[in-house]
């Protein structure tokens, strides 16, 4: 099976998906260009964020429809400020308006990739030294609460997606001083164990339910 994947953001998400997808389906390997797609390959395009990803999805639909050996389109998008259901409906409606009949799967990252990453319990220090992290923990403790329920952090003017990114960076930095996370450098997430821990959170606690979309899209 060959898969055409459109991810939300620019650099980071491509790197994370390149590492994580073969962990869900070891048969799949990532290729660099559409011409390299042969057997059990996955080609990943960055959608450039909302709303420009609609153009990329539309072209992706055409590519899959017109290329016989491309079997499925997968779309991985943040719900950000929308509910899971509303974002899924928005994408479903967009695809259905094109009249396409291709096989496709939608992954809603509810509400962003960092929310999933916050599900890794191993990165959470129980007694952090960093004051800001202590405040974050008090506001919402991701060790016990479902990261998908993370609220805004109005004290610093952060919406929930921005808060998730700040929180994740603080957590990683607390664990290892040199470890950080940015959207363009998500190297902390590019480890098999990181993926395992995110998956365990779903399986053991039922948190980060939207991660199930990810697990089902590539098999």
């Amino acid at each position: 099976m060959n898969i055409y994947l459109v991810v939300e953001g620019p650099v980071g998400e491509k790197q994370v998906y390149s590492h994580w997808v073969p962990l869900v389906n070891p048969k799949l390997s990532v290729v660099k260009t559409i011409n390299d797609v042969k057997k059990d390959n996955i080609i990943i395009y960055s959608g450039g964020g909302y709303p420009s990803y609609f153009e990329v999805i539309e072209a992706g639909i055409e590519d899959v429809a017109s290329t016989p050996h491309l079997d499925r389109l997968v779309i991985a998008i943040d719900s950000e400020e929308m509910t899971y259901d509303d974002k899924r409906k928005e994408i479903e409606d967009f695809i259905s308006d094109t009249g396409t009949t291709i096989d496709y799967k939608i992954i809603i990252q509810h509400f962003c990739l960092e929310t999933w990453a916050l599900g890794n319990k191993k990165i959470v220090s129980r007694k952090p030294k960093d004051k800001k992290l202590q405040e974050y923990n008090q506001h919402f403790n991701v060790l016990v609460n479902d990261p998908e329920l993370l609220p805004d952090y109005p004290q610093d003017g952060l919406n929930r997606a921005q808060f998730a990114e700040h929180y994740l960076r603080k957590l990683l930095n607390e664990k290892h001083r040199n470890l950080t996370y940015t959207k363009s450098n998500p190297s902390a997430l590019l480890h098999d164990k990181y993926y395992d821990n995110v998956k365990n959170r779903l399986n053991n606690d039922g948190h980060n339910k939207s991660f199930n979309d990810f697990l089902l899209a590539f098999i």
Partner: peptide
């Protein structure tokens, strides 16, 4: 031109998704 094939993605999108460019 050859390696991007006949994809309908815009040239810029193909470019920024090319690991060589990035």
């Amino acid at each position: 031109e050859n390696s991007y094939g006949k994809s309908k993605q815009k040239a810029f999108i193909q470019l920024i998704n090319d690991p060589f460019y990035m």
